[in-house]
Amino acid sequence: MTISRLLLGAAAIAVSAGVASAESHLSETSDMRIALSNNYAGNSWRQAMLQSWEEVAGKAVENGVVAAADAYTTSENQATEQAAQIQNLILQGYDAIVLNAASPTALNGAVRAACDAGVVVVSFDGVVTEPCAWRIAVDFQQMGREQVEYLATRLPDGGNLLEIRGLAGVFVDDEIHAGIQAGVEANPQFEIVGSVHGDWAQDVAQKAVAGILPSLPEIDGVVTQGGDGYGAAQAFEAAGRDMPIIVLGNRQDEMKWWAEMRDESGYETLSLSIAPGVATLAFWVSQQILAGAEVPKDLTVPFLKVTQDTLDETLAATPEGSVANVLYSQEDAQKVIADAKEAM
C-alpha cells in the first residue's frame, strides 16, 4: 500500500517533471477553466466544430491540463443573447472565454467587461474587433490568391477561368473574390471569362454554371469558394465539355468525386478550406495565454489543404455529407503563435 503510493507519487513527479521541462517557462493551468461561447449550431460545420471541441478539450480536462472546458451555445443566434451569455460566463468565474461571435462589433462591450474582470478572451472564425481580445482570423483573401497560384503551377501558359462566388453581400464572398482578383492581376496569363453566384451550395452552383456555360469559351480552370465544386463538375459533365481543373473546398462529396475522377483519368486538383477544428486551435491558444505565453493579438488560421497525396486518407476520415476536419494539438498552437511572432 505504502509502496504503491510511493510509486504513484514518484510517477506523478516524473510526469510533472516531464511536462515542466516541455513547457519550461510556462506556468500550470490545471486549476483553470475555459468556456466556449458559441452563437449558432444549426449547420454541419458548427456541429463538427462542437464535436471537435468536445473531443480535444474533453481530453485536455481528462489529462488535467485544464480544470474545465465547457461549451455554451446561445438559444438564438443574436448578439444581445451572446453578450448576456458572456457576462454570465464572467460571473461563473471562467479564466478564459473562447468565442465564435455573432457580430464582430456588437459584443465589444461584454468582451471589454470580461477583459476588465481579468478573463482572457480568444475569438475565432467570427472574430471581435475589441482590442483587448485575441483574434484567430481566417485570411480569406489568401484563400482566393492561392487558388490562382495553384492554377499557375498547373497551367503555366494560363487560360480562361470561371469564377464561382458565394452568397452576394456577405463579407466572406467579397474577401475571397478580392483574393482571386489579386491572384489574376499577379498572373496576367489568366483571364476570368465568367462569374456566377453559387451560394456555397452544390445545387445552386450546378444550376448557375449550367446556365452560363453555353455562352463561354473553353474553360481551363474553375476557382471556387467551397461547397460549390461538385455542382460545377456536374454542370460541365452534363454539358459534355472537357473537365477543367476545379479547385475544391474540402466537402466530402467533392473529394469523393475527385477520387473517382482520379481513378478514372488521373485527374489532379487542389482542395482547400477552413477546418471546423479551428475551435480546438483557439482552445489551445487560450490555454497557452493562461499559461503565461506571450501571444500576439492577431493570429491566422492555417488552411486545411487536401492534395493528391492526402486525398485518400482525408476522404476516409470525413463522414458522409460533412467537411474535412483537423484537430489541433498544443504543439500546433505553439507553432501558430511562433509563426505570428516571427511575422511581427
Partner: peptide, 15 residues
C-alpha cells in the same frame, strides 16, 4: 444598448 455594446449591428435588437 449602444452605450453597453459600444457599437451596433443592423440586427442587434430583433429579439
Amino acid at each position: 444598448l449602444v452605450g453597453l455594446t459600444t457599437s451596433a449591428d443592423a440586427n442587434i435588437a430583433l429579439r
